[in-house]
Design a protein around this nucleic acid. Structure first.
Lengths: 342, 342
DNA sequence: TTTAGCACTCTCGGAAGGCGAGTGCTAAAG
DNA sequence: CTTTAGCACTCGCCTTCCGAGAGTGCTAAA
């Protein structure tokens, strides 16, 4: 595409950097003074006019400074952004945080804490998708009779998730019978992903277990329920942080975002559709209209090389991309480590 | 205390009613026109001056209309407020809502849905405290060995709560031994509230179970952990609704509230300390400074006559108390019913 | 005791005008 | 040909300044 000569790139980088810090349109004067460009304001003005024509910058109104356009941010993120290091304070915070976290065994709680830490560190809003049951693989189930009519099914996944449901038992069954049914299912289903546990199962299982088909039905229904579980598996942190951003002094925008924050499914969708690894979505690159002047940085976390979920940071398009990226990278790395230790 | 004559009461009621609707200071003119007081503006003016002196009304500034003071709201709520009925739409909504809800078995999910419905109906923010483990009574526990070193403990409460935790087993124990320990604990602890399961236990149990004291330790530690479980057992609904209130056009206030909303423990505290039955806390009657210009209407919901948790609605002091109270009453009633059917 | 009339107060909204930051253009310098 | 200095111009923002409108308190009459 359009190749920017080195000088234009330097100027663009300076504009983006400055605007990210100040949130104010940046003028040629400011650039020539505060950045080592060795150019006069006039020259910079000309270059900026070019950059605007090329679509990397824009003016809020005539005779104001320039601010980066979406395309400008994109170029910055792709080509101009330097890597930053964690500050000593951030390192310290992370260190302490993960030390604390080791005590917690439940993945959902861990992930919730991660959301919080992420928002504290970045000072933006964080979104964290907990591991989804349906993407995990079936490991085994156990059945605990409660009384004549009900039993508790405990489901274990390969990722260490444990989930229980009460099911109704259509009729009293002996412990032996139950054990056999469960053992059979455990054998048949081991390794299958939860999402795959649907109608396809029924066909296979009927033939040789006719007498127990009713209890099987209950169990399969329960599994299917798990596979389509609409539970909110998303955690937010620092939602109030968006109010610190000058771009959200407009109540309407805030309202739209806050409303979005209450819609678990749509948020989940956003994080689910993020590809593996680190992704940065800027402005209208986000699918949801409410996020059209936001940017979202996401990364997936893994167990045994398989993606479990996603963590993300949401801020204005004028986001400190470099800093956020570094923090997210570090966070996923440590989270992966933590999870792999069970 | 100060007895208000009937006329003053009528006027106060009119002021509160009008201000609740319009959010604008109400003047003598408006009152004489829109309310059947059969009094001239001048007379009303005099009475309003009295009411102000008595502390029930206040003026935002000289020569503006009057608005209710906190004391004014308090008097209104205690003595002046008429009962309102649910609108047909509200009834319909509730009907549908609870029909849907019957399908859900897990109390936490139910309660989360209630929070949502409550915010939709009231158009304020809702807070709902889920049943707290520690207030429930121990019913029984089951232990499922996972491998040599770990076992899953499943805890049942009398309220139908089911909670599981993985514990480390200090050494391999035979199934028989485990069964006996668990059976023993089940007998000893049945009916005790989870909150009571602390150090007091240890004394009783040591003597006759010396050989298994290590596994006992693990189990007791696990129970104790449950009793002090800091998990977020609170659900919010309609947080973005506060932005619709003109009193929250000030970003600072909103920010304080949103930040508070992220602090589960403090919110939990607020709801925990609410007495049984319906309570209305106005302005500074709320313990948290962030809520000093909010009002909170709460009610507790029950199972078998025992309070399980609390539901609440948070809005500006200029809240539609009558409407909210009716909705909350109806909601708790139906929720009680739903829960009692398991 | 109630009411009409009146002068007074205070907020809010819009208009006017000055300030400052920044631009684009032109012409000179390198 | 590129860079730079100078300059006129534009435009948003802030302050100030009314005028309108709503509402009050007081006084005097019904």
């Amino acid at each position: 595409m359009t190749a920017l000569n080195e000088r234009k790139q330097k100027i663009l980088r300076a504009v983006v950097t400055d605007y990210i810090q100040t949130a104010e349109p940046v003028g040629s004067r400011t650039l020539s003074r505060h950045y080592q460009l060795a150019l006069s304001a006039a020259t910079i003005r000309n270059e900026m006019a070019d950059l605007e024509e090329l679509g990397f910058l824009k003016q809020p109104h005539t005779s104001a400074g320039r601010i980066p356009s979406q395309q400008g941010y994109r170029f910055y993120v792709d080509s101009l952004m330097d890597q930053v290091e964690l500050t000593p304070q951030e390192k310290l915070y992370l260190e302490k945080f993960f030390t604390q976290l080791q005590k917690i065994r439940e993945i959902d709680q861990i992930v919730q804490q991660v959301a919080k830490a992420l928002s504290v560190l970045t000072r933006y809003t964080s979104l964290v998708l907990a591991p989804q049951l349906k993407h995990c693989a079936f490991a085994q189930m156990r059945l605990i009779p409660i009384d004549e009519k009900q039993a508790l099914v405990v489901l274990f996944t390969d990722t260490g998730y444990i989930r229980n449901k009460v099911i109704e038992m259509p009729r009293a069954l002996s412990a032996d019978e139950l054990d056999r049914v469960v053992a059979y299912l455990n054998e048949e289903l081991a390794g299958q992903t939860i999402a795959g546990l649907t109608a396809a199962r029924l066909r296979k299982l009927r033939p040789d277990l006719y007498s127990r088909v009713d209890i099987l039905h209950s169990l399969l229904a329960m599994l299917e329920e798990c596979s389509s579980d609409g539970e909110t598996r998303i955690f937010l942190g620092g939602t109030s942080n968006i109010l610190d951003q000058p771009e959200f002094k407009d109540m309407e925008k805030v309202k739209h975002l806050l409303t979005l924050f209450e819609e678990g499914e749509r948020l989940t969708f956003i994080l689910e559709t993020a590809p593996e690894g680190i992704t940065i979505r800027i402005g209208t690159e986000n699918l949801l209209a409410e996020m059209h002047d936001c940017s979202l940085v996401t990364a997936s976390y893994h167990l045994h090389g398989r993606p479990l979920g996603t963590i993300g940071v949401l801020g204005p398009t004028r986001m400190e991309y470099a800093r956020v990226t570094t923090i997210i990278k570090e966070m996923t790395e440590r989270l992966n480590m933590l999870i792999s230790m069970l």
